[in-house]
Amino acid sequence: MSRVVSFEGLWCVFEHRSGQLVNALHDVNFEVQPGEFVCVVGRSGHGKTTLLRVLAGLQPPTAGQTRLGDSVVEGPGADRAMVFQQDTVFPWLHVRENVEFGLRALKVDDAERERTTAHWLDAVGLTDFADSWPRELSGGMRKRVALASAMAVGSDVILMDEPFGSLDYFTRRNLHDVLLDLWEATQKTIFFVTHDIEEALILADRVILLAEGKLVDDIPVNLPRPRDEDIRASSAAVDITKTILAHLGITEEEATQV
């Protein structure tokens, strides 16, 4: 049962060793409806990952709270599975055992665990690699394992912290398709952190823009799906891109030069 995710007056302040205080999150307030695909976009060091970690329960906020439905987030849990930027597939477990990990932790019975694991391995196209070691897989395949593991635990919300950042363009595009297929099939709420505007245009229903820890814009992405090159080159898409660039402090000329 999907639930509304709400951030209420969220502050996150870190103290550096030098004693300097840094506002990673600055009074962030917004709500996400069940089944939305939200991309959080911003420059490096502007609070994207912190926001996701607070929602995951890995980082307690300094003030404010995060709610999932009626429950206040107070720690990590399987209702908010996360796919990380770095490779977090357990290298000592076979692919199948990786996907089973969360189900084992949740004490799902053997038959149901096998059925669920087989389903998600099939969904990400790794059935033939179920008994492989992660070291035998490519980077893209390992990301699929992480995605299947997160999906298998039945989370309401999937958190993704620049998960495809280290992959090549083609693999990334392929994983976008896989992710969108899974999202459409499950209608889970997805939080996807990225600094890649094109990636946000391909995936998001909505773009949350963070700058210096503040929510500076909340942009609906009402582009038809699937969002191929033509759609991403449409005037609506270009307008969204320009808005994002402007918020990030990059003019059109600078963006062209880059």
Binding site: L58, A78, A81, T88, L93, F101, G102, A105, L106, A150
Partner: peptide
């Protein structure tokens, strides 16, 4: 952290991680 967000308990994380 990944294990925690997948529902890992101290016991399961000890055993499997």
């Amino acid at each position: 952290e990944s294990a925690l967000t997948l529902g890992g308990t101290p016991r399961s994380i000890f055993r499997w991680v």
